[in-house]
């Protein structure tokens, strides 16, 4: 199987990473060599195998529905690239 340039561009849209033509071509080459290596898994018949989704056999714990942190708005907003007093600011999304 080969991953063509069109697929790479589609994936880059899904991943929200802009790519120029040259980078897309390089990625197509890299991804093909990596997938060639990954295809080895097809040698194995796994029809009756349960997928392993988590190594830690724990059930999710419940906690009390209590607020543990208060008045951290300022702290949270501190790292924001653009903000006004109370909100994160992004480019305009509504015309």
């Amino acid at each position: 199987m080969t991953i063509d340039l069109k697929t790479v561009k589609h994936i880059s849209k899904l991943a929200r990473i802009s790519l120029d033509e040259k980078k897309a071509e390089k990625l197509a080459t890299d991804m093909n060599s990596i997938f060639e290596f990954i295809e080895k898994l097809n040698e194995l018949n796994t029809d009756n195998v349960e997928p392993l989704t988590s190594i830690a056999e724990t059930t999710l714990r419940f906690r009390d529905d209590k607020i543990t942190s208060e008045n951290i708005r300022e702290k949270i907003l501190k790292n924001s690239p653009e903000k006004n007093d109370d909100f994160f600011v992004v480019p305009k999304v509504v015309e």
Binding site: R16, I17, S18, I76, N79, S80, P81, E82, F88, V90, P91, K92, V93
Partner: peptide, 19 residues
Amino acid sequence: DGVKYGLRSSGKNLIDMYE
């Protein structure tokens, strides 16, 4: 995604900014 922390590059709209 450039919204809440970390680097933000400018884009002509939200999606462009993300990308």
